[in-house]
Design a protein around this nucleic acid. Structure first.
Length: 271
DNA sequence: AAAAGCCCCTGGATGC
DNA sequence: TGCATCCAGGGGCTTT
């Protein structure tokens, strides 16, 4: 579910309320993608200094380290003052004096990992290879173009890989390529400079508009207050196979790339 | 070394 | 109603 917009919306929905809290207890449910890397009880007494985001990771700065939270495909987080009983898909609770942060994740592709700092090998393994943040001003068209020139894979795959720019997942890759008028199968190194510039702008545009709309709620995504997003209503191609293109009325097509669905308009995205 | 495939897991939708 | 099949927002690891 969660790509950059959903993770950022999630972060904003609870960061202020948990910052300054003291952890009372951490509880684990069924195993997530990776082990926590510390005893849950060792988190007790630590203060939450703030919540940042890096790519699709939430980074909770603690007085004694760093908690990396990833929502995987089906994860979401809720922040409770009155904690309901844990459901079968609730797999992590961070109980503090200001409320409890609970991770709900049916498929358990998500993870909560403790590291001493970002320099900790545990953190570096997960964050070290990530590309630049698209919405932080450090995402430059020139560097983006240079990165594309080095890769022969399909542009959709290059966007998803997150090594040039982070946070673009399956929905927003299709959307950004539509906005830029680029065919998802085009080898990255074949994209001209002006077209790369359009794609660069499209990535920023689609991600920032999605954040404004609260992200995309396809099945069950919600922020920490249980509120869904609305960007799915504005999707130009994602999930619209067989429907008319919103620009030219041609039939939107779907193909598989790396066992994931890609959506595009064969007329608006000729190459 | 880049690129392509393979998994991890559960549940909802669809088809027979 | 029951059962099989396919599909889903991610991404690390292994194999080419």
């Amino acid at each position: 579910m969660p790509e950059l917009p959903e993770v950022e919306v999630t972060r904003r929905s609870f960061a202020d309320r948990i910052t300054g809290a003291t952890i009372r207890e951490a509880r684990l449910g069924k195993p997530l993608r990776w082990p926590l890397q510390c005893a849950p009880q060792s988190l007790a007494g630590m203060r939450v200094r703030g919540v940042r985001r890096r790519g699709k990771y939430l980074l909770m700065d603690l007085s004694g380290g760093l908690l990396l939270v990833h929502l995987g495909m089906s994860g979401s987080v809720m922040f409770y003052h009155q904690l309901p009983p844990a459901g079968v898909h609730d797999h992590f609770d961070l109980e503090t004096d200001l409320g409890t942060l609970r991770l709900h994740d049916p498929r358990r592709f998500g993870a909560v990992v403790f590291a001493l700092s970002e320099a900790d090998p545990v953190a570096r393994k997960l964050l070290g290879h990530l590309g630049v943040e698209p919405l932080d001003g450090g995402f430059e068209p020139t560097a983006f173009l240079a990165g594309l020139r080095l890769r022969k894979a399909a542009i959709k795959q290059v966007l998803l890989a997150g090594e040039l720019v982070v946070g673009v997942g399956n929905i927003y890759a299709s959307e950004a390529l539509f906005l830029a008028g680029i065919r998802p199968t085009t080898p990255a190194h074949r994209i001209s400079k002006p077209r790369a510039a359009r794609l660069h702008a499209a990535v920023i545009d689609v991600l920032s508009r999605a954040v404004e709309k609260g992200g995309s709620t396809l099945r069950d995504f919600s922020n920490a207050n249980g509120e869904g997003g609305y960007f799915q209503l504005e999707a130009m191609v994602y999930g619209r196979a067989g429907a008319p293109c919103r620009v030219c009325a041609s039939t939107v097509r779907t193909i598989k790339q790396g066992q994931r669905s890609t959506f595009f308009c064969p007329v608006c995205q000729k190459r």
